[in-house]
C-alpha cells in the first residue's frame, strides 16, 4: 500500500511539473473558453446555456488531451530512456505501476475539471445545480477511460517525436470532428453523421445532456464502452507482439 501511495504521489508531481500539460490542459482550454463565450459573438439563442455547454466542451477537451498525450508520451519517454527496463528489475509489480499511472492521471483530471469549472464560474458566472456540477464532473472523469486506453496505444510507439506528433493529430481531429470546438449542428450533414460515432462526441454529449437537466444517452455510454474495449484489446495485442523477443 505504501508503495502504491508513493507511486501515485510522484506520478502526480511529475505531471504537474510538465509544462506541456499545464499549457495544453489548463491554459488553452480556459483561453478558448474565454474567447468563444466573450470575444467571438456566437449568436447563441440561450446565452447561459451556451456558456455552460461550452464549459463542458472545454473541460472534455482538456481531459481528453491529457489522457491521450500526457500519458502516452510519458510512457514512450520512460521506455525509450530505459526507465521501464530498470523498473522491471525492481520489486514494483507491473500492476501497481500501471494502476498508479491511471490513478495519478485521474487525480490530475479531477484537478483539471475543478479548475476549469471554477474558471467558468468566475468568467461567465456559469451556475449549475450542485447535482449537475457533480454529475458532469463524474461523467468527464469516467468518460476519459477510452482516451486513457488510446494513451496506452500512443505509449506503445517507439519514438517520443512520433508519439507526440501522432497523438496531437488524433487529438485535434477528434476534438473538431466531435463537436468540442463548435457544435456539430452547425457542421455539414456528412460531418455530423460521422461525428456522432466518434468517442469525442459521445464523451462530450454526456456532459452536454447533464447541464440541460437530462441524463447521458444510453447510446453515448455504449459507444464509449465499445471504444474502451476495442482500444484495450488493441493495446494488449500490441504489447504482446512487442514482448515476443
Amino acid at each position: 500500500m505504501k508503495i502504491f501511495q508513493m507511486q501515485c504521489k510522484y506520478e502526480i508531481i511529475r505531471i504537474l511539473r510538465n509544462r506541456y500539460f499545464v499549457f495544453w490542459s489548463l491554459v488553452m482550454p480556459i483561453l478558448f473558453y474565454y474567447i468563444f463565450t466573450n470575444v467571438v459573438n456566437t449568436n447563441a439563442p440561450d446565452k447561459a446555456e451556451w456558456q455552460a455547454h461550452y464549459l463542458m466542451s472545454m473541460t472534455v477537451f482538456s481531459v481528453m488531451g491529457s489522457s491521450m498525450m500526457t500519458l502516452g508520451i510519458r510512457m514512450v519517454q520512460e521506455r525509450s530512456q530505459g526507465w521501464s527496463t530498470f523498473i522491471r528489475i525492481t520489486p514494483l509489480s507491473d500492476t501497481v505501476y500501471f494502476a498508479a499511472q491511471m490513478i495519478g492521471q485521474s487525480v490530475i483530471h479531477l484537478l483539471s475539471i475543478i479548475i476549469i469549472f471554477i474558471a467558468g464560474a468566475l468568467i461567465n458566472g456559469v451556475s449549475l445545480t450542485a447535482l449537475e456540477w457533480t454529475l458532469s464532473g463524474l461523467w468527464i472523469l469516467l468518460g476519459s477511460l477510452p482516451f486513457l486506453a488510446i494513451g496506452t496505444l500512443v505509449g506503445s510507439m517507439k519514438k517520443v517525436e512520433t508519439a507526440a506528433g501522432v497523438s496531437n493529430v488524433i487529438y485535434m481531429v477528434l476534438a473538431i470532428a466531435g463537436g468540442l470546438w463548435m457544435p456539430l449542428e452547425i457542421m455539414p450533414k456528412v460531418m455530423q453523421s460521422i461525428g456522432k460515432w466518434l468517442p469525442s462526441y459521445n464523451f462530450g454529449n454526456g456532459a452536454w445532456e447533464i447541464i440541460r437537466g437530462n441524463m447521458p444517452d444510453w447510446r453515448n455510454i455504449l459507444i464509449l464502452i465499445a471504444y474502451l474495449a476495442l482500444f484495450m484489446l488493441l493495446s494488449k495485442y500490441i504489447r504482446r507482439k512487442q514482448e515476443a523477443v
Binding site: N18, Q81, G82, T85
Partner: peptide
C-alpha cells in the same frame, strides 16, 4: 540491485 549498461533516469523528478 543493478546498474545497466544504458543508464536511465525518470524525467520529471
Amino acid at each position: 540491485g543493478t546498474m545497466l549498461q544504458e543508464v536511465s533516469v525518470m524525467p520529471g523528478l
